[in-house]
Design a protein around this nucleic acid. Structure first.
Lengths: 225, 225
DNA sequence: TTCTGTTTTTTTGGATCCATAAAAGGCATT
DNA sequence: AATGCCTTTTATGGATCCAAAAAAACAGAA
């Protein structure tokens, strides 16, 4: 097991996402400590972290409950990601792409083109795409030269997107994995073009729209951990 | 002293904002515990909270340092607030104002009108304005029917805006307290009108612009605590 | 039966203890 | 004098202990 309490945090996140501790359920230090086989101390620390992440909330004077997320919460969380990434894109477009940033984005796009060329995706391709996708987004966010936006996105992304999938995807998703990912890839191209041309407003708008399709892969962006 | 460790958190935030622990400085549990006259336990808990808030960050394997904020960080933090409140305003405009929300906004505006009528502001008036301002913003954010946006704003607002003031205000501020607050009040009117007319895009844009002037009073919005 | 006041239990917050890992400091050798 | 190794110190993570407060259980009276 890891030396600090990060493994407790990770496990708790997972258990909450997977519904092992149900939404709205009161969650006690002792029980969790027993479940995970550790003492109360790392659990207490983890509770503070999870509280800030928004997965737990204090109930009255004492104790925590697993936070409940409505369908609207998830919808808004997606839009929050959209406006934050849109902000990053606009700033980047207005500041102008540096050569290394441009090269990284072009690398992602070229690799993506190669991936979709054969007309279908295998599992390994989807994994590869996830990595490329994460790299593309991270490049833009980090190129803003500040951690503020990345932090805001990361904190927002701790919402239980596992359940988000079941809520959103069933309704809005397109008719196939390939088509969906290919559309995301095409959106990346549009964003890149706008960035390249210094069209800040357009880059922002495109990123905001892109967030909706990106939801499905929120946890794969590499930002959340 | 308070029963839980919230007072430790509050004091630490304050000490960091005020530069008692300098940016980039390594911060140890023992020393802080001694400084505050408590044991290490509440300090350890507070460190986790402050870490999530972005005021502290881990250094290597062990310990925390006070996070450093650049001028750009503060600038971007303001814009983050702007896009988040803009998102709230757009959603609200598109969903339509309910009567109680409309009444609360109109109350803030009427009270504000009264405040500015006499052409100058006393200290008590500024206090009153801060309350009205916070109420106006909170009304819009809470009217979205989800805590997601409010949470994102609150977390973002834990940046040390105390130093933010010294960075931003000296450069961009208008030529007087009265004029600045009056302009903010007028912006509230514009936002209200856009909300009332269901003009989502305009409401969003106005809120984003409003964030720049709102920075000075970030900690008075009542969202930060 | 229901409301209320009391007692018991549970659970959290804070303090302390211990083990361990990182950092610091000293010493020897080249 | 500089570098590498070893010892000492220090700080953190985890476990346990204790006190206090909240919740729950219980008993008695209207």
């Amino acid at each position: 097991m890891a030396s600090d309490n990060s493994s407790v945090i990770t496990q708790l996140r997972k258990m909450i996402s997977e519904g092992e501790y149900r939404q709205g359920e009161r969650i006690g230090e002792v029980r969790v400590a027993e479940d995970l086989g550790v003492s109360r101390t790392p659990v207490r620390l983890a509770f503070r972290t999870l509280e800030q992440e928004g997965l737990l909330e204090r109930t009255g004077k004492r104790g925590f409950v697993v936070r409940e997320f409505s369908e609207r919460d998830v919808q808004v969380a997606v839009e929050v990601r959209g406006v934050l990434e849109g902000l990053a894109a606009r700033r980047l477009a207005e500041a102008g792409l540096t050569d290394p940033v441009r090269e990284q984005l072009e690398h992602c796009l070229a690799e993506g083109d190669a991936l979709f060329r054969k007309g279908y995706l295998e599992d390994a391709d989807i994994t590869a795409w996830s990595r490329l996708n994460g790299h593309f987004h991270r490049t833009i966010i980090e190129a803003t030269g500040t951690r503020v936006i990345a932090d805001a996105i990361r904190r927002n992304d701790h919402l239980p997107f596992a359940s988000a999938e079941s809520i959103i995807i069933d309704k809005h998703c397109l008719d196939g994995e390939y088509r969906k990912l290919f559309m995301a890839h095409q959106q990346h191209w549009l964003v890149y073009q706008a960035l390249r041309e210094g069209e800040g407003a357009r880059a922002e708008m495109l990123m905001r729209e892109h967030a909706y399709i990106g939801l499905r892969y929120g946890s794969l962006f590499g930002l959340t951990g």
